[in-house]
Amino acid sequence: MKAYSTIFRQKILETYESTPISQRQLANKFSVALSFIQKLLKQS
């Protein structure tokens, strides 16, 4: 499995912070697993 780039991760974080969107909707929008979103948000 390919690791996601730092730029891609930053884009997800910026979208989450600037938009009223659920974690599940965010995962669907960026075509990633919900667990990836949850781990990313915990790390930030």
Rank of each mutant, 00 (worst) to 15 (best):
M1P: 06
K2T: 14
A3F: 04
A3G: 03
Y4G: 02
S5A: 06
S5K: 11
T6M: 05
T6C: 01
T6N: 11
T6D: 11
T6R: 12
T6K: 13
I7C: 07
I7H: 12
I7K: 15
I7Q: 14
F8T: 09
F8R: 11
R9V: 06
Q10K: 13
Q10S: 09
Q10G: 02
K11E: 14
K11S: 13
K11P: 01
I12M: 10
I12Y: 02
I12V: 10
L13W: 07
L13K: 15
L13A: 10
L13E: 05
L13H: 06
L13V: 13
L13D: 05
E14F: 07
E14A: 12
E14G: 05
E14D: 14
E14Y: 06
E14Q: 13
E14W: 03
T15L: 05
T15Y: 09
T15G: 03
T15P: 02
T15D: 07
T15S: 10
T15Q: 10
T15E: 12
T15C: 11
Y16I: 03
Y16S: 07
Y16E: 07
E17K: 14
E17W: 07
E17A: 13
E17C: 10
E17F: 09
S18P: 05
S18Y: 10
T19D: 09
T19I: 13
P20T: 15
P20F: 11
I21L: 08
I21Q: 03
S22K: 01
S22M: 01
S22L: 02
S22V: 01
Q23A: 04
Q23N: 03
Q23H: 04
Q23C: 01
Q23G: 01
Q23Y: 02
R24Y: 07
R24D: 08
R24A: 14
Q25W: 03
Q25H: 10
Q25C: 10
L26R: 00
L26A: 00
L26H: 02
A27D: 01
A27C: 00
A27P: 02
N28D: 15
N28W: 03
N28A: 12
N28S: 14
N28C: 10
K29Q: 15
F30H: 06
F30G: 04
S31M: 06
V32D: 00
V32I: 08
V32T: 06
A33Y: 05
A33E: 12
A33M: 05
A33R: 12
A33K: 13
A33N: 13
L34C: 07
L34N: 12
L34R: 12
L34K: 13
L34I: 14
L34Q: 14
S35M: 08
S35C: 10
S35K: 11
S35A: 14
S35T: 10
F36M: 06
F36R: 00
F36T: 10
I37P: 04
I37L: 02
I37N: 01
I37T: 02
I37S: 00
Q38H: 08
Q38E: 11
K39R: 15
K39I: 06
K39E: 11
K39N: 13
L40R: 00
L40F: 01
L40Y: 04
L40P: 04
L40D: 03
L41R: 01
L41F: 04
L41H: 04
L41I: 09
K42Y: 07
K42F: 05
K42H: 09
Q43S: 15
Q43E: 15
Q43G: 06
Q43A: 15
S44N: 15
S44F: 09
S44W: 08
